[in-house]
């Protein structure tokens, strides 16, 4: 299943890029992300706890960043699984500077297996979109706080 979308963030491209590459920021902004441990360069192990309605699951996964061109684009591969099923996702993030703001675009392909897929198929697109919305809102808050915390040069 394809997912795509975009979000305009009120920060420069370098600031957004730095936030997206900071595990501390990701733990605060990715919905349900409990732990993110580096296992190598641009490779992480993650634990995600997520509840959608009565479907509650803990998922263990690996994330890898490839084709990294700062501060423009990166490719993200995520593989994970939990009791309700497994998820494999690959997607590209591109950052486009627009004055003092940055437009983040994402295009990805998600494969879901298990009971998660057989029962949740009709909900999946909507859930992905909603979670992306939650993530970008949190990211927006985070880049705001960072900008406020750093004294102007």
């Amino acid at each position: 299943m394809k997912i795509e979308g975009e979000h305009l963030l009120p920060a420069t491209r370098d600031e957004v890029w730095a936030a997206l590459n900071d595990p501390d920021v990701l733990v605060k902004t990715v919905p349900g992300l409990k732990q993110l441990n580096p296992t190598g360069e641009d490779a992480y192990e993650a634990t995600i706890e997520l509840a959608v309605g009565p479907v509650r699951g803990t998922y263990q996964g690996r994330a890898r960043i490839t084709d990294k061109t700062a501060p423009e684009r990166m490719t993200l591969t995520v593989e994970g699984g939990g009791r309700p099923g497994t998820i494999r996702a690959a997607g590209a993030l591109t950052l486009e500077g627009q004055g003092t703001e940055t437009l983040v675009r994402y295009v990805g392909d998600v494969q879901v297996t298990g009971i998660l897929m057989s029962v949740g198929h009709r909900l999946f697109g909507g859930v992905a979109k909603q979670l992306a919305g939650v993530f970008f809102k949190a990211l927006e808050r985070e880049v705001h706080q960072r900008a406020a915390a750093e004294p102007a040069l």
Binding site: P54, V55, R83
Partner: peptide
């Protein structure tokens, strides 16, 4: 924990073991 009201959505999901409160 999960609240059970009429159970017409929750119970089918529990029977499929998508939900396991």
């Amino acid at each position: 924990a999960k609240i059970l009201a009429g159970g017409q959505s929750l119970l089918p999901m529990m029977k499929l073991r998508v939900a396991t409160p």
